[in-house]
Write a protein that binds this DNA or RNA. Structure first.
Lengths: 185, 185
DNA sequence: TTTTAAATACCGAACGATCGGTAAAGAAAA
DNA sequence: TTTTCTTTACCGATCGTTCGGTATTTAAAA
């Protein structure tokens, strides 16, 4: 690498921030460029596939975060209750306590929906499965565990929407608490 | 009105369908025109404020639906349990059993977010309040009723997202069932 | 009842602005 | 010097929007 005025990690963070804030269609190259501090053509040097490539890179980046921060924790060999606490804490950090939107939801409308539908569905399903796995470790039967996995994602996604539109981040924290209660019941 | 190739009700339905499907930024005038059967210039005759005016009209239309189909039912003088059933049924119909997205969520990204933020927040709050009111009628105390109102919206919104991305509409029906269980507990 | 004028609705064509994207040249690192 | 990265300048396409003009309907005048 010759030189880079802006570190790749920073670029990734900024792209993620723009996409999750305004959605795929709402994110113009002009905004992506000014947010990253790179000119449009420089973005195309780093992402030869353009806007689609940037979005794909962001989704891959998030997938890596999921693997290391969520699935790794939920499926580790620690005591089940500690795993649940650790995962919910990591989730709370990632969404800044309910102040940031979910990138998967932001990519589920318009032009991006068709391109990334399968990848988004797979990620959601992985989340459901990981939570369901933890539920079985906590003694729930298979059917109940599946329902708990689904309801966890429902509560995370739904509370993020309400937290942001009503500007009440505590609704997100309440939802995380409710998930914990459900699992330990 | 002189003459009208396409009935206003039809136009409203088509606009609603496009906006909720692809979001505000994702809905181009070209698509809105072809969906309604009107040319772009004709859309501007009916909606002098252009795309923003169309979105506002759609949100007003949905507000009217909320008032007559949800709030009217939830706050009527019928027995509380029957009100709950009727409201959940109406909601299920409006979202076609989980196959259609929420227009409010679709308008929460990008350019539309800034324009309609207050109106969207108000509508969500009205939903929460209506559900909370019903909860008190069912004998729940004030705090519990508030939580039930919030969790109802969380489940509706969250399950709509999962139902559509995972293409499993039954997740939405499950959520409606869960709401009923929560209220009657 | 017929004629005429106003009002209403629609549409083709074009507007300036912005979209995502690219080619070529300059500058820094190797 | 070669390679890597950034930059300026630009492209065609599409964006939301507007204009000039044409149907169709309503209503007043004759």
């Amino acid at each position: 690498m010759a030189f880079s005025k802006v570190e790749p990690d920073i670029v990734m963070e900024r792209l993620l921030h723009v996409f999750r804030s305004v959605g795929y269609d709402g994110a113009s190259l002009t905004e992506l460029a000014s947010a990253t501090g790179l000119k449009k053509a420089s973005l195309y040097h780093r992402f030869p596939d353009g806007k689609v490539g940037m979005a794909r890179a962001v989704l891959d980046h998030v997938k890596g975060w999921d693997d290391s921060q969520i699935f790794y924790i939920l499926l580790s060999s620690e005591p089940a209750k500690e795993r649940l606490d650790a995962a919910l804490n990591a989730i709370s950090v990632f969404y800044e306590g309910g102040r940031l939107a979910c990138i998967l939801r932001a990519m589920s409308h318009g032009a991006a929906a068709e391109i990334f539908r399968d990848q988004i569905a797979e990620t959601f399903q992985n989340w459901v499965n990981a939570f369901a796995h933890l539920a079985t470790d906590l003694g729930h039967d298979s059917d109940t565990a599946q329902k708990l996995g689904e309801s966890s994602l429902v509560k995370i996604q739904g509370s993020l929407i309400l937290a942001q539109t009503l500007q009440k981040p505590e609704l997100f924290q309440d939802a995380l608490e409710a998930i914990k209660t459900d699992f330990l019941k």
